[in-house]
Each structure stands twice: as C-alpha cells, then as structure tokens.
Design a binder for these strands. Sequence first.
DNA 1: AGGCTATACTTGAGTGCTCAAGGAGGTGGC
DNA 2: GCCACCTCCTTGAGCACTCAAGTATAGCCT
Lengths: 169, 169
Amino acid sequence: MTDPQTDPQTSPQTDAQADPQTDPPGPDPLDTALRLVRAQATLVKRFDAGLSGLHGVSLSDFTMLLRLSEAPGGRMRRVDLAEALGLTASGVTRGLAPLERIGLVTREAAPRDARVAYAALTPTGRERLSEMLTTARQIATDVFTPTQWPPNDLTTLATLLTPLTGPRR
Amino acid sequence: MTDPQTDPQTSPQTDAQADPQTDPPGPDPLDTALRLVRAQATLVKRFDAGLSGLHGVSLSDFTMLLRLSEAPGGRMRRVDLAEALGLTASGVTRGLAPLERIGLVTREAAPRDARVAYAALTPTGRERLSEMLTTARQIATDVFTPTQWPPNDLTTLATLLTPLTGPRR
DNA sequence: AGGCTATACTTGAGTGCTCAAGGAGGTGGC
DNA sequence: GCCACCTCCTTGAGCACTCAAGTATAGCCT
C-alpha cells in the first residue's frame, strides 16, 4: 500500500519549519483535516438514514428545526437562521420550503419591516421535532459508542472541535 | 425584539426522551456530532477556496489525486478508488472526468479484465499534485494554528476521529 | 455450448447546496 | 419629495454528489 515510487515530494519548500526534535510520524495537520472530512461524511450518512427512515427528514432539515426551537418563540428571521447554520440565505429558502409544505414551519411577516419574513416552528413542528430529537440523540450515542472512549474523550472532542466550527457561533 | 415569550421546552437537552435515569450534565453526543459537521463545512470551504484559487481544483479533486498518488504506480481500479474515498463508483466517474479532460489523470484498460478501467496519474498530474500538496499542507496548518493547541492535541484529534471515519479505510 | 449470477463501470434523474442577479422594501441626504 | 444606497429574500443556473437502471464483461455450473 505504501508506495515505493510515488510520493510526489513536496517541493523543497520552507514549510518544514526548523524543528529541533524528531517527529517522523508527527501530527500531520493535513491528514487530520482529511480525516475530519471523512468522519463527517460518515456521520451525515448515518443521521440521514436514521432520521429519514423514522421521520422523513434529512439531517439538515433536523438542524434547521433544532435551531428554530432554540430561538425565543421558536421563530427567527431567515437571514439569522442562515447565519446560525452556516448557510446562505438561499440555502435557507430552499431548505425551509419543504418544511413549510408539510406544516412543520410557517412563514410570518414582521410587523414593522415588510422585507423580513420570520420562519416559525408550528405546534406540529415542535411535536415532531421532539420525536426527532430522541432519534437523533440515539444515533449520536450509537455513533460514538463503539469507539469505547471514556466519556471524557467525548468532551475533549467537542472542545477541540469548537474553535473550528467557523467564524462565529 | 428578543421577546422571551413564555416557552418552556426547547433547551438543548431537557425535554422529551423517556430517560428513566438522568445522566449528570455529561458530554452531549448529539451536540458533539453537530459540531463535527459544522467544523467540516468550514474546513471544506477553506480548502476549496485555497486550492481552486491557486490550482483550479476542488478539495475533492485534490483528495482523488492524493489517493491515486499513494497507490503503486499511481494507478487504481476506479472501484477501489471509490472505496478508498468513501464515494460511490458513480461519484468517481463524475469526479475523474474533468481531471482526465485537463490531463492530470488518464484511463487505462486492464490487460486481463475488460470490465475494469484504471485511473492513473499522468506525469503532469504528479507534478501539479505536488504543488497542490504544499498549498494543502499550508492550509491545514493555518486552520489549526489559531486554535493554539499544543501539537499533542492535533494528534489527539486525529486519534479520536479515526474510528469515526467509516466502515473501513 | 448455454445460461446464471456477479462485477465494473456509465448514465439519467434527483437533491441540496452554491453564487449571481433581481425584486421589493426601508433609510438618509438634500 | 426624491434619489441613491442598503438589507432581506427569492430565483435561475450550476456543481458535486446520490441511487437506480443499463451495458458489457467475467466466470462458474451443468
């Protein structure tokens, strides 16, 4: 598997910073980043499978509903929802559309500013979300369980991940 | 505007779930999983921006080339490449097409089995990849740098992530 | 030989996001 | 009162993947 003739050696670039101590299999940031990307793909698949099987929604539907539920009154300006989810306004429009169609979310006009439309969780939406939540928690637990980490490591992972989650949050 | 209408439920982790015994305020697996998803989205954006700006390829183009370069002779059956990348065969066909068009990869027939088509890195591909590699390493380093973790934490992260990266690898 | 099943790959349709352009409404200078 | 500009949101086009179906080849069993 390890290739004899290939390694496209890095050009003699200076990025190998003077490191007085040995680190042959040292922590490779690129490798770590690629692992993270891979891990996420796996996670998303499992959530999508579980959530769509039981509740007919995708992970991204679920996270939209979840964020909404965390906002006061279960409603947010669509632009703020986008920001909170790390999406564009466009992504929110398209993602919310099917949820409105099936009655989990409604569109509400803002009293003073006709430009803004709130997205609001309906009572049904709240109900359905709470069912989804138990499924989602189960999946999350299952995903991490076979790793056999002590609970501490889960905390560690969350902590390490936090600064990477984007500009703000 | 923030008008805390009386709305009980909807704390990140209180309601629903008939959980007979409550765990102490332990680490929340769901929250951790969602953080991971978010972190990846941010990462992918940074890699895509950097790689496409300098080399005109996406992160997924890059990872395809990278895996190819790790295989003996820089060539793999397309189905094995799919497996190694966690994609479907279909995804590989579509992803490789533009790379073939610009001459970084070629299609090679297998001598004994006419069903299989190898994907092989061209000399140009190898060259261009090695330039991309230095960019990618730089980005990876930049991504983790502001976290100010000791290098150990990077290793820890990689280790924690590994069991999550999928069925095999 | 013929037929069955399995494997490697491509293709059509669909999904979920992106960016860029555009409409509609709000705001401040004059 | 008007005009330039800003914000919120939607829409068209495109991209990167998916699944399902289709094609071609391989190999085994009788």
